[in-house]
Design a protein around this nucleic acid. Structure first.
Lengths: 353, 353
DNA sequence: TGTAAACGGTAAATCGATTTTTTGCTGTTG
DNA sequence: CAACAGCAAAAAATCGATTTACCGTTTACA
C-alpha cells in the first residue's frame, strides 16, 4: 500500500536504500532483477519500495544510456482514421517493449518534419517511425542519415537505401481496382491524386494504369493531380467536368480526393453509381453506412505498424545488414458506389445542376 | 554550419566549454541568456556551439527541476477527427511554450487511463490534459488529486472541485437542436447515446429535453442508451425500430451513434430526411459531402484546446484559487438530413426492408 | 599451496545539464 | 595599506538513476 503523504517530493532510490538499510546500487540491482543479491536484502528492498510507493524515474534511468527508451513517431497528420489508428497501434507496440512513444504531427510540412526530427534527436530517442510527408527522399530522411539515427519509414514510401520501409502494396491494390472497374465495363476512368506524394501516387497510378491497359488496351485513363494541397485538385476537377468530360468511374488515390469527388458529384447532382462510379484509396468508418456505401481500398494498418516496429527494434538492438522494403497487401472493398456504366437510369451523364 | 562528423556521441556542454575555453557553467549561462557574462566569452561560446552543432539535451536539462517541460495528454482514442484535431492543437500550443506534448490513448478504458496517468507521474510531467473516458469523477482524476498533479480536464466533463475543466456547451447546443427539430414540427424524437459518459450525455440529454418540452409540452422523447460500448446500442436501436416505433427524427449524442443510426436506416431502406431526420453531435468532414449531408453539432476544438492550455499553464506557473469550469459554445450545422415530418414522399415510414 | 573466481555488497564515477558556492581579481575607501 | 565591495568565472553540488571498480571472504581448481 503506497502511503506517500506529501505530494511534494517523490521518494528517490536513496530513500528506498536508507529505508532498506542497503546502498542505492543494491536497490538498483534488485529492481533490475540481478540474482546475486541476498534474498533477505532483496526482500527488504521490496518492502521499502512498497512502503514508500517508490517508482523508478524513467528519465533519470535513461540518463546513463546513449539511447533512451523512447520511440518517436512522426505522422503527417492526426485527423484521419488511418494515422489515428497507426499511432494507437504504434503506441501499444512500443509500450509492450517498455518504451514510451512520443508522437508528433508534421502537419503535412516537410520543414516542420525536419524540425521535429531534430527535436527527437535532441531527445536521443532510440528510434523513429517516420511517415514522411512526401516520400523517402525528403530532407527528414537525409537528416536521419546524416545524424546516424535509427528509424523506419512507413506509408508514403517504397524503398530506401538506408532505412527499412513498410507500406501498403498500393500498386497491387490499384491493379485490383483496375480489374474490378474494367471488368465491370468501364472504359473511361478518371484518376485523381496529389502528385506531391510522389512515391505512392506513382505506384498507385502505374499499378492501376498497367493493369487496366492490359485488360483493355483501348481504355481511356485521365489523370488529375495537384502539386500541393487538395483545393487546387477541387478546382481542376471542376474544370474537367465543366469541359464536358464524362468518365464513367473515378478512382481517387487518397481519402481527401474521395471527399472532393463526392462533393463535386453533389454539386452536379450526380449519383453513385448510376451517374458515375467511385472507388477511393483508404477506407473510413462512414463509408459503409452512407448511401451509397463507398468502395474503398483498406490499408493493413495493424500489419504495417507491427512490421515497422519489428524492423525498428531489430535495428535498435543493433542488427545490421541491408534495409528491407516491405509491402503489405491491401483489401479492396467493392461497395455500392461502383456499378456498370450504362446500367443506371441516368447513363447519359447529363449535367443536372 | 554544423560539422558534426561522428554520429556516435553528440557534443555535450563540456565539449562546448572546452572549445570555448570556459567552464560548463558559463556555457549554460550564456545559453540561458544571462547578461553577466563578458561579451567576449559569450561570443566564444556561440562560436563553439555553432562549430560543434551543439544542442541542449532537454532531458538532462529537465533533470534538476521538479517539474519537467513536458505536458501529458490523455485522450480516449485517436481515431476520430475530434480527438485528432485536439491532439494537433494541444501539441502546437505546448510547443509554443517550449514544452513537449506526450500524447497517449486510454482506448476508452478507465483502467488504462489510470495506468497512463501513473506513468506520466513517473515522468514528472509539468501538467496533464486529461479527456476522461467517463467523467470528472473517475479513478484517474482521483489519482491526480491524491498525487498533487496539476492538470485540466476536458471534453466529457462539466465541473470539478479540484481541477479546471473545459468542454463544449453540450446543453446549449442540444437546446438549439431541440429548437430546430421542434420548430420543424417533429413531435416524436429518439435520442441515442452512451450512458457511460455520464457528464456530457446527461447535459446533452437534459438540454435537449427541457428545451423541446418547453416549446411543445406534448412532444414525445424516447431515449436509448447503452452502458458500455456501441454494439449494444445498435441492437437496442434495431429492437426499437423492430417493435414498430417510428420517430420522425433521431438525435445522436455522439459520433458513433450517428454512424449506427445511419447504418440502421440503411438496413431498413429509410432515407433521410424523407423517412426520418437525423442530427448528430460531433461533425466530421464526410458529413457535408454525402447525400444527404448530415446535420451536426460542431465542437469548438481550437477554443477548447487553447482555453485548456491557458488554464493549465496558469496552474503550472503556480496560480492558486478555485477551479474554473468553462463551457465553450458549439455551432449547429443544419443540413439536408433534417426535414419536416410528413413532407417527404415516404412519410408513412413503412418498413421497406 | 597458490592463483582465481564467485560472492555480496559499497563507494564513487557517470550521464548532461543547472544552480549554488567559492575563488580570484580589480578597484575603492577609511 | 588593510579591508571590503563588486564582479566574472570556475569549482562543486545537485537531480535520480545506473554502472564500474573495488574490497574482503570464501570456495574451487590446478
Amino acid at each position: 500500500m503506497a502511503q506517500q503523504e506529501s505530494p511534494q517530493r517523490r521518494p528517490s532510490i536513496h530513500d528506498v536504500a536508507s529505508h532498506a538499510g542497503v546502498s542505492a546500487a543494491t536497490v538498483s540491482k534488485v529492481l533490475a532483477g540481478v540474482t546475486t543479491v541476498k534474498p533477505e536484502n532483496a526482500q527488504r528492498v521490496f518492502d521499502a519500495v512498497e512502503r514508500l510507493g517508490y517508482r523508478v524515474d524513467p528519465l533519470a534511468s535513461d540518463m546513463r544510456r546513449a539511447k533512451r527508451r523512447i520511440i518517436g513517431a512522426i505522422m503527417p497528420e492526426f485527423e484521419s482514421e488511418f494515422f489515428g489508428q497507426m499511432v494507437t497501434e504504434l503506441e501499444g507496440l512500443a509500450e509492450q517493449r517498455g518504451y514510451t512513444l512520443v508522437a508528433a504531427s508534421s502537419r503535412e510540412s516537410e520543414v516542420r518534419e525536419k524540425e521535429i526530427l531534430a527535436r527527437m534527436h535532441d531527445w536521443r530517442v532510440a528510434g523513429v517511425v517516420l511517415a514522411p510527408v512526401r516520400n523517402e527522399h525528403g530532407p527528414a530522411a537525409d537528416f536521419m542519415k546524416a545524424n546516424g539515427m535509427t528509424g523506419v519509414l512507413i506509408d508514403r514510401v517504397l524503398s530506401d537505401d538506408a532505412f527499412d520501409t513498410v507500406s501498403a502494396d498500393s500498386a497491387a491494390a490499384s491493379a485490383e481496382v483496375a480489374r474490378m472497374l474494367v471488368g465491370k465495363g468501364h472504359s473511361h476512368i478518371l484518376v485523381i491524386g496529389l502528385a506531391e506524394q510522389a512515391a505512392t501516387v506513382r505506384a498507385r497510378l502505374e499499378g492501376f494504369r498497367s493493369q487496366a491497359l492490359a485488360l483493355n488496351p483501348s481504355v481511356r485513363i485521365d489523370v488529375i493531380t495537384s502539386e500541393v494541397s487538395v483545393e487546387p485538385l477541387r478546382s481542376s476537377l471542376r474544370d474537367y467536368f465543366g469541359q464536358g468530360e464524362r468518365p464513367t468511374a473515378v478512382y481517387s488515390l487518397l481519402l481527401k480526393g474521395t471527399l472532393v469527388a463526392l462533393s463535386e458529384f453533389r454539386r452536379r447532382g450526380w449519383h453513385c453509381p448510376d451517374d458515375i462510379s467511385l472507388v477511393g484509396f483508404d477506407d473510413a468508418e462512414w463509408m459503409q453506412v452512407t448511401w451509397p456505401a463507398i468502395a474503398a481500398v483498406v490499408q493493413p494498418v495493424r500489419r504495417i505498424a507491427s512490421e515497422a516496429m519489428n524492423l525498428l527494434f531489430r535495428r535498435v538492438e543493433g542488427a545490421v545488414g541491408p534495409p528491407t522494403a516491405r509491402l503489405e497487401p491491401c483489401q479492396v472493398l467493392m461497395r455500392e458506389s461502383v456499378g456498370s456504366p450504362g446500367s443506371g437510369p441516368h447513363s447519359g451523364g447529363g449535367d443536372r445542376q
